[in-house]
Every structure is written in structure tokens, then in C-alpha cells.
Design a protein around this nucleic acid. Structure first.
Length: 540
DNA sequence: AAAGCCCCCAACCGCATTGCC
DNA sequence: TGGCAATGCGGTTGGGGGCTT
């Protein structure tokens, strides 16, 4: 097995019919008192010896196994064999779908922390999980699929944003970044935009909704400075993973039948489909999970002080619920915090791990609860409305606010959000206020008529194209309302901020504002709209 | 049927961490 | 407090078997 193993004389421990006895044993000149220690596959005889030894002496002190049992294996090998194959209650066989789902979720939260993941999967070993994951990575890469189900990307990004700087997603994110085959060795995040939980943005995820569809390879933030977002990173013109892009996607998909979901459909969102399980997934891995997203990656050139960061999500020290310290710092990847948000009900709480992150976890949870409490008293909404508030609720508020005749065109996004009273928007009320269905039918059809992986690929494709959502939904909506209120330029600018407005105005003179938007925002994107089957003709 | 290819997984390696003296 | 051994952990390897040609 091991690359350094050598073949020498047969080990006396081996049974006559052992595979090793046929092929010759891997024996290494051990330093254990001159005893040659065997390497390679274990035989049943060796297993029996080891099991017998553990029965008598218990686990531990593995180096003594060789001395006491005569087993020509090093203690490390004995421990590994016991832990991975011989210890009782080991679950053999393929992972169940539930286990697979859990692994995916755990990996999204923990990264390559196999041992910790194994703690959540009784009877499974870290090695099993690791092998499964590596296999999965290869499979997904081959298939050109993202490593995580789409909705889990959202969940992860939410979770990471909930506890930046402590969440141990460095590895995980790195994996994600690489999982698609997109190495990002030179990515310079000098302006990783974190949308802070500013009071004006009790639920900033709506802004993420606007950015749905911003994905690799041309993911450039167009967040204007005037909006007031913190600007931290610069993403070079390097491929970016879907994961990174998904950092910007934040929709609550808790209630598939809710207004939110319909809104999401109308906005060109996709139904998450897990090709491995051959089924449509509910929006959100966990029906109880809700997200708030806060990361926008920016290619803004306005910011200097490039920081070479492994992962943007780790570059923010939480200063409080509502702001993140943008100061880049090296975050020890071993200091991980699981979710600061509510854990999925089926996900064991990390509180049982007894690690430092658990303390962080609890501290964050406490702080978050305090924040929620304060929000409750100040906004007349329940904590769930804040913590679990749907991005689309806010999104609907955007529209709601936008079509408000009293809402002057050209508002900054911030002003739009400021104007949003975070109340729960019912479907009926929403539909009364905006003709969502007009858009929904088009986009919905395009995203749902496919099945299997093809749909997911299409979904990714759509999401990878920033114009997809803007062009198909957002801009159309904007245009629709703009026809009533003013120019499309104003409509878009109001959503993107005044910084872009000038550009929009400049370019819209020669074409539609949607194209202007694409031009000024995604100017590195080739054939911005030609891939799109979505109509780009603004409604008259 | 044989050869080549590919995938899976058991096991090893090296580093990090922990515990003990 | 430093050194050493034991243990934990994650990355990597390569053999075996299944699949394809």
C-alpha cells in the first residue's frame, strides 16, 4: 500500500492463505527492537490477534500491541486498523442517502475535518468519509457539477457569513474553490465586499438576490461605493468558483409554496436539483434553515491594499452583529466555529465537540439572540423574521418600495432598503402590488422544464451569468415599473446605486439600459447576452 | 478473452497535538 | 519548561477489481 513499503521475507504472523503470503509481505525494518514490522493489507489472522489484544487490554497503548501480542505491526497501524475496521459498531457498506446528505452538509460547514465529521456519523470513520468525499469531488468535477448542491451553497455562505473569522471554512472553501477545478492561487481579494448587517439592512439578503446569477467566471461586483458597502477585496480576472459566486446568492427557500418561492421563481431562481439523488431538493437543505448573506466580491479598482487571502470569508473579524472588521488577518483554520445560525435539526450541535469553536459558537449564538431581541423590540417583527427572514421578503419589499410612487427614482439601494419596513409580505399582498407572474412564467419555464443534471447545469449556467437574473427578471421588472415611473436607467440605478447611474445614463443613450448595465458592469463578459434565451427587449 | 483504463478504498506517511515525565 | 512518546488527523498512495474497448 504505502509507497515506501518494501518486500522482504514472510512475516510469521501471516496465515498460510493470506494474500500477503502469496505475494510476499511488505516488511519494513522496524526500529522496534529490531523486529521487522509488517506493512500492507491486514490479514484475518492479524485482525484476530489485534481484536484479541484489545479485548484483553483495551484500546490505547498501541505500541504495546506488538510487544504483547507478537503482532508485527507498528502501533500506529494497529490503531488505524482497529479504528477503521475492527472496532465494534462500525457501519459497513455504502453510505445511505441520509448519510451522504449529512456529509455534504457537514463538509460545507467544517471543510476537510474528517474526524469531526465522523463524530456526526456513528459507525463511520473519518477515512470512509474522506474517501467518499474525494470520490464525490472527482465525480462532480467530471460531471461539471458544483461540489455542493446549489441550495447548500447558499446555506454555507450564510453560515460562513454568520460567523466570519471563526468559521473553519477555509479548508472547505478552498475545497470548494478547487472542486470545480478552479484553482485560485493568485486571486487577490483586496476588496471582498461584506455587506454589513447595518441597521438599514436588517436583512441584506435581498441584495444578494439581485446578484443571483453572478458566478464564475465573470463575477464582478458592481456594488457602487455610494451604497456604502464595505469594500475590501479585489478579485482579479481569475476564474472564480461557483461557490464564491454563491456567496452572493441569498434566498430563503424555506417555504416552497410561499410567496418567497414564487418570487424566487419570478426572479429566475432555480430549483435545486440533486442529480445524485435524482430528485428536486426542497429549497434549503433544511426547512428550518434560513440565511442571511452578506458577501459581495468586488472587482472594484477603488480600493487599494490588496490582501492575498486564502478565503474571503475568513478575513473578517466579527465586531458585532452588524459589522465585520474588514481588517484582513490570518485566521487559524483550526479555530473553527460551526454555525452561528440555527443548526439544522438533524445536524448535531457542535456544542458537543468540546472545542474552542464551541465556545465561539455559543458566544455568537448569544450575541445573535441579543441582536434579534433588539430587533424585535424595534421593528415589531419577530426574531424569526429577522434571523430567518426571507431574502425574498426583502426582495419583495424592494419591489414594493420601488413601485411606490413616493419612491423617487434613482434612489440608492440603501435608500430603498431604508424604505422597507421589514414586515412579512404575504403572497397575496405581493401579487397585488406587482405583476410578478408576468415574469415568472417565462423564467420558471426555462428553469424547470429540464430534468436531472442538465437542469442543474443550466441553473449554474444561468447563475453564472449575471445578466441572467438581471436581464430576465430584475431589469424587466425594473423596466416594467420604469415605464410607469421613469427611465429604465433610473430603475436600475436605483437598485445598483448612483455610482452606476451615470454610466447607465451614458450608455443607455445608444441602447437599452439593460445592455448598458451589462456593459458597464460586466464589461469583461463576452457576449453578455447572447447566451441568454431570455428576452432582452424591454417591454414597451 | 485480453488489455487497458479507471475508480474505490485500505493503508501509509508526515505533521500537529496532547500527555507525561 | 523542555523533551519525548503516544495519539490524532489529514493528505496521499497504490493495489485490486470492475468496466470498457
Amino acid at each position: 500500500m504505502g509507497g515506501s513499503s518494501t518486500t522482504e521475507s514472510e512475516d510469521g504472523v501471516l496465515s498460510a492463505d493470506s494474500p500477503m503470503s502469496n505475494d510476499g509481505d511488505n516488511i519494513s525494518e522496524g526500529s522496534n527492537g529490531g523486529v521487522v514490522l509488517k506493512k500492507g493489507p491486514w490479514t484475518s489472522a492479524e485482525d484476530a490477534i489485534l481484536v484479541d489484544y484489545v479485548k484483553k487490554h483495551g484500546e490505547g497503548n498501541w505500541n504495546a500491541v506488538q510487544k504483547h501480542s507478537g503482532l508485527s505491526r507498528c502501533g500506529k497501524s494497529c490503531h488505524l486498523r482497529w479504528a477503521n475496521h475492527l472496532r465494534p459498531n462500525l457501519k459497513k457498506g455504502a453510505f445511505t442517502s441520509e448519510e451522504e446528505q449529512l456529509i455534504i452538509e457537514l463538509h460545507a460547514k467544517m471543510g476537510n475535518k474528517w474526524a469531526r465529521m465522523a463524530a456526526h456519523l456513528p459507525g463511520r470513520t473519518d477515512n470512509e468519509i474522506k474517501n467518499y468525499w474525494n470520490t464525490r469531488v472527482k465525480r462532480r468535477q467530471r460531471a461539471g457539477l458544483p461540489l455542493y448542491p446549489s441550495e447548500l451553497c447558499l446555506q454555507e455562505s450564510q453560515q460562513q457569513h454568520s460567523s466570519p473569522g471563526t468559521y473553519g471554512g477555509d479548508k472547505g472553501c478552498h475545497d470548494i474553490l478547487q472542486s470545480n477545478g478552479y484553482e485560485t492561487p493568485d486571486v487577490m481579494f483586496d476588496s471582498c465586499n461584506i455587506l454589513s448587517y447595518a441597521p438599514e439592512f436588517p436583512d441584506i439578503s435581498a441584495s444578494g438576490s439581485m446578484f443571483d446569477g453572478f458566478s464564475y467566471p465573470q463575477f464582478y461586483s458592481f456594488v457602487p461605493q455610494s451604497i456604502g458597502f464595505q469594500k475590501h477585496t479585489q478579485v482579479r480576472d481569475e476564474p472564480m468558483s461557483e461557490y464564491v459566486a454563491n456567496e452572493a446568492l441569498l434566498f430563503d427557500r424555506t417555504q416552497p409554496d410561499s410567496c418567497d418561492n414564487k418570487m424566487s421563481q419570478s426572479l429566475g431562481l432555480y430549483f435545486p436539483y440533486d442529480p445524485e439523488h435524482k430528485k428536486l431538493l426542497p429549497f434549503g437543505v433544511n426547512q428550518d434553515s434560513h440565511f442571511m448573506s452578506n458577501v459581495i466580491f468586488s472587482a472594484s479598482k477603488h480600493f487599494s491594499g490588496a490582501q492575498k487571502l486564502e478565503l474571503p470569508s475568513l478575513q473578517y473579524q466579527e465586531m458585532g452583529f452588524g459589522m465585520w472588521d474588514p481588517a484582513p488577518q490570518s485566521v487559524d483554520s483550526t479555530v473553527q466555529s460551526p454555525l452561528s445560525g440555527p443548526l439544522p435539526s438533524h445536524c448535531p450541535s457542535p456544542q458537543s465537540s468540546g472545542l474552542l469553536e464551541d465556545l465561539l459558537y455559543e458566544a455568537k449564538a448569544l450575541r445573535k439572540s441579543e441582536y434579534q431581541s433588539s430587533m424585535t423590540t424595534s421593528t415589531n417583527i419577530s426574531p424569526e423574521d429577522i434571523t430567518y427572514s426571507s431574502a425574498l421578503k426583502t426582495c419583495s419589499m424592494e419591489f414594493k418600495d420601488y413601485i411606490d410612487p413616493g419612491s423617487p427614482p434613482g434612489n440608492s439601494m440603501e435608500s430603498i432598503f431604508n424604505g422597507c419596513t421589514p414586515t412579512v409580505t404575504t403572497e397575496s399582498s405581493l401579487q397585488r402590488e406587482m405583476p410578478v407572474h408576468k415574469v415568472k412564467s417565462e423564467v420558471f419555464d426555462q428553469t424547470c422544464i429540464l430534468d436531472g443534471e442538465r437542469k442543474e447545469i443550466l441553473n449554474q449556467s444561468a447563475r453564472s451569468r449575471p445578466d441572467a437574473i438581471l436581464g430576465s427578471c430584475w431589469v424587466k421588472q425594473s423596466a416594467y415599473f420604469s415605464n410607469q415611473q421613469g427611465s429604465v436607467t433610473n430603475a436600475i440605478a436605483s437598485l445598483l446605486g448612483n455610482d452606476l447611474r451615470t454610466e447607465l445614463e451614458n450608455t443607455s443613450a445608444s441602447g437599452s439600459s439593460t445592455r448598458a448595465l451589462g456593459s458597464c458592469t460586466w464589461n469583461n463578459m463576452p457576449a453578455v447576452y447572447q447566451m441568454s434565451e431570455l428576452p432582452w427587449t424591454l417591454p414597451k
